[in-house]
Design a protein around this nucleic acid. Sequence first.
RNA 1: GCCCCUGUAGCUCAGCCUGGAUAGAGCAUUAGCCUUCUAAGCUAAGGGUCGCAGGUUCAAAUCCUGUCGGGGGCACCA
Length: 556
Amino acid sequence: MQKESVAEILSKALAKKKINLKIQEILERIEIPPSSEMGDFAFPCFFLASKLKRNPADIALEIREEIEKIPPEFQDIQTKGPYINFFVNRGNLAADVIKEILEKKDNFGSKGIGKGKKMLVEHTSINPNASPHVGRARNAIIGDSLVRILKFQGFNVDTHYYVNDVSKQIAMLVLAGAEKLKFESMLKKYVKISAEIKKSKKKEQQVFDLLEKFESGDKETTKKFNKVTSTCVKGQEKILGKLGINYDVFDYESTYLNRSKEILAQLEKSGKLFQDEEGRIVLDLKNTSVEGKMRTPLLVLTRSNATGLYPLRDIAYTLDKMKKADSNLIVLGEDQKLYFNQISEALKILGSDFPKVVHYSYILLSEGKKKKKMSTRKGDVVLLEDFLEDAIKKAEKKSKKKSYAKTIGIAAVRYVILKNSADKIINFNLDDALNFEGDTGPYLLYSYARASSILRKIKENKKIELKYDELEPQEIELIKKFAEFPEIVLKSYNNSDPSYIANYSYKLAQAFSDFYQNCPVMKSKNEKFRILLVKSFRQVLKNSLNLLGIDVLEEM
RNA sequence: GCCCCUGUAGCUCAGCCUGGAUAGAGCAUUAGCCUUCUAAGCUAAGGGUCGCAGGUUCAAAUCCUGUCGGGGGCACCA
């Protein structure tokens, strides 16, 4: 709104100089200055220099002179070098923003984009073989945050977890006789059997035999597979549940085994199916987006013995998902990029749309200067549950009540994952991750708790009074941060990337710390106004953290 | 060989999409601040050829091309 006023003022002034620009063009050129001292909006005059053959700083001065009256929305309009800087009336801004926050409360920041729309999100979908490590958890944490963002924007979201029960990993565990084991013992068993299989070709063959038996519906084998899968899924669900990550539906790959023929028949109609010299059925993907991304653009659908491969089940599953919602989102590791591209092309051939996909990179374990990939197979991992437990233990030592530790631990874990953009490899160092100072989850909670502490000490004043003497720079920064929140949420939504919200939360908390340090609330001249600022801060930070899956604490 | 991601301070990252005013944080280091709302905090200092080389532009960390380093992927694993 204020930006539009800036454009209008400029448009008039420019016209007097016989420079006719459309409002839209001016809007595109308006910038936000790097610091509030330079104003709230800026108009750079460089582009006029070549046209007018003048120094851009002089041009700025001249345009400024053409602006006679400063409208009430603005405090001042100044030039600084080649920039014309606009200072909005901060009082108005403060009043507008604070009113909106305190009215909309938990809804402040939502644009309600998803109202009346159904969304299906699939995330996590870890191999059900053992306790998830931090690398795997990145999927779940990003996925869960996206679900929260979507719900916040008004979508009706269903969260699905796809269980790859038709898998070599389960077969390995079955071979190792793990069906009676508890979840806690699975990892050890898995590491052991992995090592054994690596050494023995015979054992490896046994694994494939088991898998084939399961695929063909052998009752004894199925029973064992189901037992192992069920133990693992329940175990993983419990651990992720501790982080506040929950699922509406678990879909099992094995239920799609009998859909293979049907999918093949449908693909057959496209004429792009062929059998190669070894008897495999293959989908030709020439002239699709995967061309040039792989040696030969195709997708192998069956083994030479005609049994279906994973992609067939995946296609069947995705077709089902697409029918269940207005739109679909899936979170996958970067290693699945090309594969998912292939699946999407297959779906296109079948006349179906395909899910929007969010990819994320690995988490590397970094110890000193060494960096290595986490491997469940080798047992070379930081387990999510261990990490969380360490974080909670550390929090217990520092907080006023032990019961706060869980929330603080979760905040530390989730935030450290979410603050990085998804396509970046995270160098994970447990010691750094357990640091609760600076750019961390606990710091965010701390700033919230301090805000709450102020309000506890002040007599409740229900009247909203927006009167104050003069705004301090720290107050202005804080208010401007509040005003940014809805745009940040929108950006996160548009890019399916929670890291914007994570980084915003930190900057918001920092702005509050700065305010806290410099602007006493109690017994200050502007006490009533500052109380409203503190209240607004709590609300905005709470909303922001909620999207990251972090609960707030009133004290810690 | 081809495709995708990535390279910014000693370390971990933001900024890049949408080019502009002195490149920002945190950790670590050094020096300060608790008889006033929680010091998990704040202030200050040192620390940068934004991988490298070209190009576009009045202006490039940001856009384009090339190149080097790291990661991922490219036919019966899931």
